[in-house]
């Protein structure tokens, strides 16, 4: 009859041992150091992300203009699309890292 309580005690000890093996304290410390690093890395990214989408959009528009001989129009039409894509990049970059 004393098997029941013994078993729960064993489970508890097993859980404690597993927790110790995982080392939860070290992990949280590493996460904290990583967050400052991540913030700095993010700050470096944002500006370029915005511009890169714009550049790609304008280049695509320019290429299509050359293809269809519609000189400025497709390039102009691509500018708002490029701006939207840049904002999309920013939103994606600054979103929660685990919920992207």
């Amino acid at each position: 009859m004393s098997e029941g309580p013994d078993k729960t005690a064993f489970e508890q000890r097993l859980q404690a041992a597993e927790g110790a093996a995982k080392g939860p304290v070290r992990e949280s410390a590493a996460k904290q150091a990583g967050s400052a690093q991540r913030a700095l890395a993010l700050a470096m990214r944002l500006g370029v992300e915005l511009v890169a989408a714009m550049v790609i959009a304008v280049v695509i528009g320019w290429g299509l203009d050359k293809l269809f001989h519609t000189k400025p129009w497709l390039m102009i039409a691509m500018v708002p699309v490029g701006m939207a894509a840049g904002i999309r990049n920013l939103v994606r970059a600054s979103g929660k890292p685990d919920k992207r």
Binding site: I56, V81, A85, R92
Partner: peptide, 8 residues
């Protein structure tokens, strides 16, 4: 927009 975002 998504495609341009990807290509960028």
């Amino acid at each position: 927009i998504e495609i341009i975002s990807y290509l960028s």
